[in-house]
């Protein structure tokens, strides 16, 4: 605990926390969000493609996005350490914060495995294996846990758990709603196609 207090009193932490300029704390936080956008955003796009969305998009060229994701990741590892020093005693004694770190570790691990499975594995022109799809789903889920845990470090633990439950409920509703909605849309287009081909057949006769 004394060591953590020492970190908070370091000149870097004091400057970050107390400097009136927006180029200290606020900018570090903003860069942390840039990193999130890069690593979570781009890996989400790749995961969605692996799950079967935008099927016309070639898989292999997506591999060139990974270096940008790692830029985002290291940007956040760096700014993350800076942000911890600002309030070291709070963050490093908070279970939620360790949950966030665990979720990030799991997300990055599944993303690495997904990269290997899809981009370095065999069958370059084939689809994505069932394992690849599971890894894509896992990556998305772990990012959601990481974002939720990260956000609620600013609140009391019980509010954090309530929020997690709310994220789960809303996420499930959106997922089910989207699935049903997509099926209905696809169903109606299939019906249209059938009606159209029927009328075309009638016209041919």
């Amino acid at each position: 605990m004394e060591f953590l207090a020492l970190i908070e009193q370091s000149s870097l932490a004091v400057w970050l926390r107390e400097s009136p300029t927006v180029f200290a704390y606020a900018t570090v936080l903003a860069v942390h969000t840039f990193g999130l956008a890069l690593v979570v955003g781009l890996s989400t796009a790749v995961a969605l493609r692996a799950l079967g969305f935008a099927p016309g998009m070639a898989l292999l060229p997506l591999g060139s996005l990974f270096p940008l994701m790692w830029v985002g990741f290291w940007l956040n590892a760096f700014t993350g350490v800076l942000l911890v020093t600002i309030d070291a005693r709070l963050f490093l004694t908070m279970p939620t914060f360790y949950l966030k770190l665990l979720a990030i570790a799991l997300a990055i691990t599944s993303l690495r495995w997904l990269q290997t499975e899809v981009f370095e594995g065999r069958a370059p022109n084939g689809g994505v294996s069932a394992k690849g799809k599971r890894l894509a789903g896992a990556t998305l889920l772990f990012w959601l846990v990481a974002i939720t845990a990260g956000r609620v470090t600013a609140y009391d633990a019980y509010i954090g758990w309530e929020t997690a439950a709310a994220v789960l409920v809303l996420g499930t509703l959106l997922l089910v709603g989207g699935h049903v909605g997509a099926r209905m849309l696809r169903g109606s287009t299939r019906l249209e196609r059938r009606t159209m081909s029927a009328s075309r057949a009638a016209a041919d006769m």
Binding site: T33, L36, L38, V40, G41, I147, T163, V167
Partner: peptide
């Protein structure tokens, strides 16, 4: 939980948009 839920939505939305 309403306010932090909205914050999570804001970040998920941001990631989807930039992604």
């Amino acid at each position: 939980w309403v306010w932090p839920l909205a914050e999570v939505m804001h970040f998920v939305g941001l990631a989807l948009l930039i992604g």
